[in-house]
Design a protein around this nucleic acid. Structure first.
Lengths: 219, 219
DNA sequence: GCGCTATGTAAACGATTGCTGACTTGCCAA
DNA sequence: TTGGCAAGTCAGCAATCGTTTACATAGCGC
C-alpha cells in the first residue's frame, strides 16, 4: 500500500467494447500504459523473433506489430522503417553477445555452444544466432552483421589460443559457421534425430568437432 | 543447303516494334523456339538460383521469369504456382544429389566438401546446398527437403562407417548442418577470411573437423 | 484545472505481390 | 495448304506489402 498510484485493474472503454489494459504496451507489472521505451522494447522483442524465425522478407511489419500488441505505425515512428527495425535488432543482439560472451576457454566452448543450442534458454540464444544470417539486402544491416560475426570469431580465436592470423581466424569462423548451420537446421526442419537432440546428446559430438577444429596447433 | 528449314535470322514483327527471335526460350544452338521442355528447364535453373540466393519469399516470380527470359504466366502454366516451382527445384536438387553423391569414403569426405564449397563448380554446388535450407512454409516442400537431408545424412553415415543408430546418424547430420552453415555464411556475408578462402585453405580445417566428428568410435 | 506535447489509433496511399483469363501465334499432322 | 492445338503474350485482377497522413487522447508542467 501507500504507492503513489493505485494499481487496480486497468480497463479501457472504447466504442467497440471493453478490454483489459496492457494489450498495447503495458509491462507485466502493470505500470505505465503510454511508455515509448516499453513499446520500443516490445517491438524489438517481437521483431527479433519474427525476423529470426521467418527471415527478413517473410516477416511482415503487421505480424510484428500484432505480436507486440502495438499499432503498426509505431514501427515507422520509432524505427523509421522496417529496415531500421531490423538494424536495431541486429545491434541489440550485438550488444548482448558482447556482454554475455565473456572470456571463455577452449575446453568450455563445446559445452557452451551445446548449451546455446539445446540448453534451458535455447530459444533466446537460437534467435540470436539465426538473426545473424538473416539478410535484408540493406547495406547498413549487412555491415552490422559482419562486424558482429567478426568480433565473435575474434573472441573465439583468442579463447582457443589460436594464432590471430588468417589460418587461425578462419578456423574460428568455420566453427562459428558450423554452429549457426546446426542451429538453423535444428530450427527450420524436422530432421531427426538432429532436431530434437538434447544438450547431452550434443556435447559429445560438438566437443570432438570443436577441439579438432580449434585446438591450437604448431607449425 | 537443303535443310528442311531455312535457319535464317528469325525476327518477330509486332505492333510494338521489331525484335530478334529467341529472346524467350531459344537454345544457344539456335534450334527450336517453342519448346515446352526447354522453357521448363530454363525456369528451373533461374528459379533455383533465385531461391537459393534470395530465399523463397524475396525471390519473385517476375524476377525468375525475367532471368529465364520467359513470360511470367508460364510459371503457373508449367508449375501451377510459385510453391510448385519451388518444390520442383527441390526435387531436382534431390535427384542430382542422389546421382552425384556416389559411394564416398570417410577420408574423401572433407576434400569432397571442400571442393563443393570452393572448388571449380562451387557455384552450382553452393546453390544446391543453400536450397536445402530455404523454407517456403509449404508442407510439401518441407517434406521433400527433410527427405533429401535425411538420405544425404544416411549416406554419410554409411560412408563414414558409423553405426546407423541415433548417435551415429546425429553425427552425420551435424556434419551436414555444419557444411551448409559454412556454405551459407560464405555466400551471404563478406566475412573474411572465410568468405574468400580457397579450396586449399579449407581442406585442412575441414579434415580435422570431419574426421573428429565422424571417425568411427567404439563403446 | 488547462493546455501542450508525446504517445497511440485508424484509414488509406501507391507499389508490388502471385495469379488468371482472353488473346495471339508458331508448329505439326493430315 | 490448312485446321487444330500447344506454346507464349498481354493486361489486369485481388490481395498484401511498407509507409504516411490526419486524427484522438493520455499525462505532465504550469
Amino acid at each position: 500500500m501507500g504507492g503513489p498510484r493505485a494499481k487496480s485493474t486497468i480497463v479501457y472503454v472504447t466504442p467497440d467494447g471493453v478490454y483489459p489494459g496492457g494489450v498495447t504496451s503495458e509491462d507485466a507489472t502493470g505500470v505505465r500504459r503510454r511508455d515509448a521505451a516499453a513499446t520500443r522494447r516490445l517491438l524489438l522483442e517481437a521483431a527479433r523473433r519474427r525476423f529470426a524465425a521467418d527471415g527478413y522478407t517473410a516477416a511482415t511489419v503487421r505480424d510484428i506489430a500484432t505480436d507486440a500488441g502495438v499499432n503498426v505505425a509505431l514501427i515507422n515512428r520509432y524505427f523509421t522503417s522496417k529496415e531500421g527495425l531490423f538494424e536495431a535488432c541486429l545491434a541489440g543482439v550485438g550488444d548482448e553477445l558482447g556482454r554475455t560472451v565473456g572470456d571463455v576457454t577452449l575446453d568450455r566452448i563445446p559445452h557452451d555452444i551445446a548449451a546455446r543450442l539445446a540448453g534451458p534458454h535455447a530459444a533466446q540464444h537460437r534467435t540470436q544466432l539465426l538473426l545473424l544470417l538473416r539478410s535484408s539486402g540493406d547495406e547498413k544491416a549487412e555491415a552490422i552483421r559482419v562486424e558482429i560475426l567478426r568480433r565473435f570469431a575474434e573472441k573465439m580465436t583468442a579463447a582457443a589460443g589460436l594464432r590471430p592470423d588468417d589460418a587461425g581466424i578462419l578456423r574460428a569462423q568455420l566453427a562459428l559457421a558450423a554452429s549457426i548451420g546446426i542451429a538453423l537446421l535444428r530450427a527450420s526442419t524436422a530432421l531427426e534425430p538432429l532436431a530434437s537432440a538434447g544438450q547431452d546428446d550434443l556435447v559429445g559430438p560438438l566437443t570432438d568437432m570443436f577441439t579438432a577444429l580449434m585446438a591450437p596447433r604448431d607449425a
